[in-house]
Design a protein around this nucleic acid. Structure first.
Lengths: 236, 236
DNA sequence: GTCTATAGGAAGATAGAC
DNA sequence: GTCTATCTTCCTATAGAC
């Protein structure tokens, strides 16, 4: 949740940094102080993520982030070397955790529809802790990908896509899922439907993320129709 | 496609406008010149919409829009009184047309699942002509709604929602759709799944919008599973 | 209808005192 | 670690010539 494995030294010119620019190695008595520092940093990141999610990355100014934290904008640059570094930390920590969750869901094993159900629940469950990051991914992904710094977004996306498509394809081969559906298209549909929920989902409301997952899976696995399944009803 | 019925006089302060600020009534020999003017204007709007879609509303500068049109940024203000006016025209013309399409789909009549299928196809078909506008709606909706000028976005959304929920509810009452699904939740799922497609759909690719609609409807109506429908398979 | 020129403000980022 | 102060750049929008 803390290390940003995707950090690059790319910047707009400014200070090249006197020491190694990565996360400092913690050891000895420095560890405690460092832990406090990262907690502070983590707070700033969470707070910025919330603003990015509400107003968009571009529309959020460093002054607003600093205001929210009760400090002045200049002071932010003691913690981060640019506004992009902040959003980078928001995204990379979320994506790293998500990838691990998915890998764990697959590692548990079971039939393809068990695994698919587990993936779907894992995705919905991430809505609550990562609502802000997911919103940023959705709204600012296209913009951020313009910068080489964020190339890793595409890499992680491909790894994640591979996990889902693999499960769907295995399900088709095993006779659990229809073979007249394109696996990639189906994956995208599932992914989009789940993520886009952050636009209106409010964790403090009546619906839990497992409610959402349940509703979605009823539709996904069995459809909204009643009676026999049909190949092409109503001219579809 | 031309008149902006949602225009308001709201602005950030500047010139209050010497004459009536609405679209001038065309009559007599002025009509031809005016038609050319609106074509020019329409071109600028389309071009701006494309940029807004690619980079986001905030990140797109009036200079970029002007560059793309081959004029200087100051000259844009001969056609529009602000950057917001441009995006307003992008959104309102799209939403007006969409609402009319949906109303027409319902007016054709038929069983709930016929109507629902028609609505879904209409939505997918709008992806091609309105890709840019749909992208802007999705990415910049939250930001734009901060300004009273864009209050009408919420109004149109409610009208549209009413149309879909009505069809779903009637289908449930008629025994065509499952009653264990929440109509509003189902509407949102459908809407989101369709709109979010603009993130990756490329009209010039192999898939037509009717392909997408077909794939989606197979899943929506009948699910991805094979064999008998089941109420709670795999612990779902 | 487009240009030149510029007002006026806000943005991201930096330097050095405390 | 935060503040004060400020640099530089870029933005939207305007005024008036052509």
């Amino acid at each position: 949740m803390s290390t940003n494995s995707h950090d690059t030294t790319a910047g707009s010119g400014g200070a090249p940094g006197p020491a190694g620019a990565g996360a400092p190695r913690k050891r000895g008595r420095a560890r405690q102080a460092s832990a406090l520092a990262s907690e502070r940093r983590g707070n700033l990141v969470r707070l910025a993520a919330e603003l990015f999610a509400q107003k968009g990355f571009q529309a959020t100014t460093v002054r607003e982030i600093a205001d929210e934290a009760g400090i002045l904008s200049g002071s932010l640059y003691h913690h981060f070397d640019s506004k992009e570094s902040i959003v980078d930390e928001v995204l990379s920590s979320f994506l790293d955790e998500l990838l691990r969750d998915y890998q764990a869901a697959v590692a548990e094993g079971g039939s393809p529809d068990d695994v698919l159900a587990r993936l779907i629940r894992a995705a919905y469950r991430s809505l609550k802790p990562h609502r802000a990051a997911i919103t940023v991914v959705q709204n600012d992904w296209n913009y951020l990908r313009q910068f080489p710094r964020f190339d890793y977004l595409g890499t992680v996306e491909e790894q994640i896509q591979g996990i889902w498509i693999d499960v769907i394809t295995r399900g088709q081969a095993a006779g659990a899922f229809r073979t007249d559906l394109d696996a990639k298209l189906t994956y995208r549909m599932i992914r989009d439907t789940i993520w886009v929920t952050v636009r209106w989902y409010r964790p403090e409301g009546a619906l839990t993320t497992d409610d959402l997952a349940g509703h979605f899976m009823r539709v996904l696995f069995d459809g909204i129709s009643l009676g026999e399944r049909t190949t092409s009803p109503a001219g579809r």
